[in-house]
């Protein structure tokens, strides 16, 4: 599979979890990539995890968070 296709697959998995109302709560980087911890935005009770492998997916997920944080940042 091409590198782009591998990334696309992981991006779709991330987007699908987010579309179910989860938000990214934590990121644990490991030798294989990163383990993403999601929590349900409404209840905070439901949790799920996704191990991502590709560099582009790791960049994608942090870009989402970075954009959110910089938007939230005062000033």
């Amino acid at each position: 599979m091409s590198a782009f296709a591998e990334f696309e697959q992981e991006k779709q998995q991330i987007d699908a979890i987010l579309a179910q109302g989860y938000t990214i709560a934590a990121i644990q980087e490991n030798l294989d990539g990163a383990l993403l911890h999601f929590i349900q935005a409404s209840s905070h009770a439901e949790r799920t995890q996704l191990q991502i492998l590709t560099a582009d997916a790791r960049k994608y997920v942090t870009t989402l968070l970075f954009a959110r944080q910089t938007q939230l940042a005062p000033g």
Binding site: H37, T62, A67, Q69
Partner: peptide
Amino acid sequence: DLPPMTWNERQRTIASLNDAYNVEVM
């Protein structure tokens, strides 16, 4: 259309996200 993001900004983003999360589950 992606915002400029450096490695250092990325690492800070992850650190502050993780700080706010209940670390026990990790």
